[in-house]
Design a protein around this nucleic acid. Structure first.
Lengths: 217, 217
DNA sequence: TCAGACATGTAAGTCGTTACATGATTCA
DNA sequence: TGAATCATGTAACGACTTACATGTCTGA
């Protein structure tokens, strides 16, 4: 049995969020779900063991949150050593984005099915993507407006952008972190839009093959 | 124990390729590398054990290729039962495409680094994507031309499109499978183009924050 | 002749999810 | 009072990669 598994990228995702401010494991999970879900995810099964490991390795420290009464809540803080490791990871070259797209596999392999089956797959995919598009553009709008006002609507966005909570209103304009958040969101929106455009193209192409111009039924 | 049988997608990727024609494990690996790499991958460590399993479960049969002399080469053929399972998988809803993009994570977490670090990350990503773009459009061109001529340039494309090998020339026009292949390739090209466009946007946005209009140095 | 492609396969480890187990707090 | 959310964590499984081990065949 292995002592503790190493877990590579999860470490840096955590360290990166801790570089903003001290957080609990639960906070980290929610932040990733709310802000990074279109390009990253972590499960509790990864998160908690990795947090313990970071403490053992001196990259973070753990203390009990005194405000949480009888409920245990551990808040983790990044150490100088942790910041150093984070910085060094940021300088390393990144893996190519690897995507596993089950729909495309099915579509590719649907050549022996009736043409309508390929069309059905395409329509399903399009609907799926359309739904996400609405989700993302909604977040984008809320965040853009909040950033323009220098005020963020709730504690979530507050943590995400690391701005001062409302009241004050940072006024100075878009904060660096808020801009980065907005841009990653935009990356997701553009990706979806390119898929929607592709769906329309593909449906047309397949239909025109089914009944090509000049064909006689 | 879990009542729901585990969903192994490798099985269906294999079954799907076998539904075109009998293939060896090595063939399957090459086909996936050459044709599906932008949305799918399988390693030998997955492939060979899964092939054995398919035979045990009666979804494929294995026979020794007699033309391969002393070198062992096993050719797998899909069974009726295998086709049934494949068809049923094709009808199931697909998982949302899940992507893990290490670059975006770094970019998102680079807010505490100097602005130039974010720019460097962006430039690196752009170059990476540009290189892949050239790769894909090249394949796309070759394949498009081959399909138009009704003749495919080598045995690879021949297998991929499941057309008759050269000589004859299918003439009748774009085969169904060739169209599907072209379209999945096009999906990859559009995705990359959307990333390139995003990079340009993002670089501009970050630069303009560094020295906003009207700012005095 | 020798590099590189063809060809099969396994062992060990990396990576990641799901289901479970436990309990506190909040608010309708 | 009871559902939702806050909060921690583990065990078992599932998915996937890498490195290795072995040997054949082809063509410059």
């Amino acid at each position: 049995m292995s002592a503790i598994p190493p877990q590579k990228k999860t470490r840096f995702a955590i360290l990166g969020l801790l570089s903003w401010q001290p957080l609990s494991g639960y906070d980290i999970k929610k932040l990733i779900e709310m802000g990074l879900s279109h390009f990253w995810s972590e499960s509790y099964g990864q998160l908690y063991p990795t947090l313990s490991q970071l403490v053992v390795q001196g990259l973070a420290t753990r203390k009990t949150d005194p405000t949480s009464g009888k409920r245990t809540r551990y808040v983790f803080t990044i150490t100088a050593q942790g910041r150093k490791e984070l910085r060094s990871w940021l300088h390393d070259p990144s893996d190519l984005p690897r995507m596993r797209n089950e729909f495309l596999l099915k579509f590719f392999l649907s050549g022996r099915q009736p043409v309508d089956e390929s069309i059905r797959l395409l329509t399903e995919y399009r609907d799926q993507q359309q739904a996400r598009h609405e989700l993302y553009t909604a977040s984008q709008k809320i965040l853009t407006r909040a950033v323009r006002l220098g005020v963020l609507p709730d504690e979530v966005a507050h943590i995400l952008t690391h701005d001062k909570p409302a009241g004050g209103g940072s006024k100075a304009g878009t904060s660096r972190q808020a801009l980065l958040f907005l841009l990653t969101l935009r990356h997701g929106v553009l990706a979806i839009e390119s898929r929607l455009a592709w769906c329309d193209e593909a449906i047309k192409a397949i239909r025109s093959q089914r009944s090509p111009a000049g064909a006689r039924s």
